[in-house]
Computed example of a mutant assay.
Amino acid sequence: MVGYVQVYTGDGKGKTTAALGLALRAAGAGLKVYIGQLIKNADYSELNVLERLADCITVRQFGRGCFLLTEPSPGDRDAARHALEEIGQVLRAGEHEVVIADEANVACALGLLTEADLLALIDQRPPQVELVLTGRGAPASVLARADLVTEMRAVKHYYDRGVLARKGIEG
């Protein structure tokens, strides 16, 4: 199998959901999947089902909680560096055919990682591994290096009418 670099970005809903759909499809085809969630550290509903697929899908959360309304702490930066190191190790090992760095673009936009970090991650990808980077604000340099870029565009969202995340739909 030849692997490619995919980026799911934009201000619309569905970037992580698209990556998780790819993970399920890959697992269904017998491929091993690794999902490293930068920033996130919560009990999202999808984790409940992914636990049942632990023989083919590995999920690691590296976030320290929600800081998106405040400035990231040195601990948040350390957690992102640790995530980057582990995801790089998984890539180099080549034991997973699909590696997803969820919210990697956001981590870069928030200053937890640099553009150079994301480009180095792409450079570490063995040719047979599919690498997926998600999150709004993907740097132009990452978009240029990707083989597939999907931009989710917000057209209309019930969040704008005050509807919060609903269990099983958004969280």
Rank of each mutant, 00 (worst) to 15 (best):
E95A: 08
V49P: 08
M152P: 10
A165M: 12
R52N: 11
K15G: 03
A138C: 13
G30S: 03
E51Q: 14
P74T: 02
G137C: 09
A116H: 07
G171P: 14
G12I: 01
N48W: 15
K167N: 14
V129L: 06
H157S: 07
V5Y: 10
A140T: 12
K13G: 09
I57A: 11
A101K: 01
G36S: 04
L121W: 05
Y44R: 14
E151Y: 05
G168M: 10
A79N: 00
V2W: 06
G88P: 01
V33P: 04
C108L: 05
G162A: 13
L164G: 02
A79F: 00
L20S: 13
R81V: 04
C66L: 14
G28I: 06
K40C: 12
A116P: 00
E115W: 03
D11M: 08
A54P: 03
I39V: 13
D11F: 09
I100M: 10
A138K: 07
I122V: 15
T58R: 13
G63H: 08
G36Y: 04
T134R: 01
A26D: 04
G168A: 09
Q124T: 10
R125T: 07
D55G: 07
Q37N: 01
S73C: 03
V7F: 15
A154P: 08
A79E: 01
K40F: 12
